[in-house]
């Protein structure tokens, strides 16, 4: 018997998400249909999602496999890391350096990245962003943050 792993995985993820939300309603008052507490609506939705998850899983059984493409692990880590680094450093390093970091990190997410290209992108985009957002739009973030001033 064949199982479409993609659909099966979707079903499992639905069930997991439903489970997590249902778990989250544990500490909330549920109430009744007529006097709903904060936990009522989410619990009902979690139930619906769980049901949908099982249906998805059930329908995956007996369905042909569909081709899967690979996961760009390097890109995944760098692209997801970039906003986190930006968030951690923006107030400390200031807009210019934090933007430069984001661009530099994400430029290397591509397997075709070269040093020259990453460097020129970083310089160009950082200047562009600082000019547009800080000088142009008055984004209330220091251009050079306190970590760099002494």
């Amino acid at each position: 018997m064949q199982i479409n792993t993609r659909d099966a995985a979707a079903g499992v993820i639905f069930i997991v998400i439903a489970g997590l939300f249902a778990l989250g309603t544990q500490e909330l008052t549920i109430g009744s249909a007529l006097r709903m507490g904060p936990g009522y609506f989410p619990l009902v939705l979690a139930g619906v999602l769980g049901f949908i998850g099982f249906v998805t899983l059930f329908k995956a059984v007996g369905k042909a496999q569909s081709p899967m493409t690979g996961v760009p692990w390097r890109g995944l880590i760098l692209i997801l890391g970039a906003p986190v680094v930006f968030g951690l450093t923006l107030r400390g390093l200031g807009l210019a350096a934090a933007t430069a970091l984001v661009v530099a990190i994400s430029a290397y997410a591509s397997r075709r990245a070269t040093f020259v290209m990453a460097a020129s992108l970083t310089v160009g985009l950082t200047i562009f962003c600082v000019v547009v957002f800080s000088y142009g739009l008055g984004l209330p973030v220091q251009r050079i943050g306190p970590w760099l001033t002494f």
Binding site: I79, L90, T99, S110, R112, L125, C129, F133, V141
Partner: peptide, 21 residues
């Protein structure tokens, strides 16, 4: 695309931050 997506990401980061600082 290798040029485009770092730009998209940088704008997104600044844009998201600007909503609630």
């Amino acid at each position: 695309y290798t040029v485009l997506f770092p730009a998209i990401l940088a704008f997104c980061c600044i844009g998201v931050y600007s909503v609630n600082s």
